[in-house]
Computed example of a mutant assay.
Amino acid sequence: MVGRAPDRRIGFSRRRQYGVFAGYVLAIAGALTGAVLLVLSTFNPPAFSALRMATASVTTPVSSGLNAVVGFFAGVPGSITDHFAVRAENRALKAEIARNRQLLSRARVIHYDNRRFRALLQLRDRSAEPVTTARLVSSTGSSGRRFAQLNAGRLAGVLPGMPVLGPEGLVGRVVETGPAVARVLLITDAESLVPVRRTRDGLPAIAAGRGDGAVDIRSVTTNVRFGAGDVFVTTGTGGIYAPGTYVARVETAGVDSALARPFAHPDGLDYALVEKPFTPMLPPRQ
């Protein structure tokens, strides 16, 4: 005869019974505690008040701690949301700053170009015999000779011997021309000689190119002192350059000769003005 398997639910039933019994005990204890508190509050209110305050003193810190914990965890989702919102706003602000930086850079370039074009237009208005405005497409800056090339030639009326000016001052003179291009001898070339005078007293001198981007101011008499900052302009002597065009400013003081820097820098020029010689050239002999 096969024996019956043991009942595996006995332990479970005992635990259940213990749980039910504990529930009854707690319920009865709670009811008794409530009845005692009710009687105490009815017949001895001061004692009940003292007991209530003592209980509150014990439970208040616990309640405060629980509220802080609950508030912390309740604020976590909001903090996470705020974090991602701040990051997104930060990225947007960085992108806007980058766009504004590009716009500012472009505005500076436009402002610089406009300022140079206005100066060139003012120069054209002051020029008595303007021929054309042309772009300086190249210039030699490393060799011993100093030439520049204009993108205008005989078709635009450009001829050899015509002076070339920039907004800041004298650039040089045309030495060769083609149908649509012209070669300019810069005043910094070693073969360039420009009659000049000092603005503060009219002292005559010669601006001779050095071939290194600067010019020498040479006196036409002896024992002449040049001071740093002396400004020299064209005199009109020789018939090519009109008088009063800025040429160079002395950098280093000297006697009978001084180093000077031209006002016009061909490497930084976009456009230049070609004008007729100060004294009209004689027509070639037939």
Rank of each mutant, 00 (worst) to 15 (best):
G202F: 04
L150P: 00
R116Q: 14
A119Y: 01
A260H: 05
R15I: 09
G236S: 09
F263R: 04
A54N: 10
S127D: 07
S105A: 14
G71N: 14
G11I: 12
Q102R: 12
P262A: 01
N90R: 13
R8L: 15
V215G: 03
Q286F: 12
V171T: 01
R261H: 13
P284G: 12
L51C: 08
A264F: 03
R124I: 01
H111R: 09
N114S: 12
L269W: 03
L26W: 15
A260W: 03
V184Y: 02
L259C: 07
R173D: 00
F84M: 12
L121P: 06
L193I: 10
R106F: 06
T60H: 11
P130L: 04
A54Y: 08
V25Y: 09
T81E: 10
S13Q: 14
D267I: 00
F12K: 14
L136E: 00
A5W: 08
T222Y: 10
G144D: 10
R99G: 07
G157T: 04
R106N: 14
R115N: 07
G211N: 02
F84T: 14
V175E: 03
G75Y: 08
V215K: 02
A190D: 05
S142V: 07
R197M: 11
H83F: 15
A92C: 08
V255L: 15
L273N: 01
G211C: 03
F117Y: 11
A248W: 02
R218E: 14
R183Q: 08
Y18C: 11
R115C: 02
N67S: 13
L26T: 10
Q17R: 13
D212G: 05
G172I: 00
A128T: 11
D230K: 05
V231T: 06
G178T: 11
P277G: 09
V233K: 04
F232V: 09
G202H: 04
I110C: 08
L165N: 01
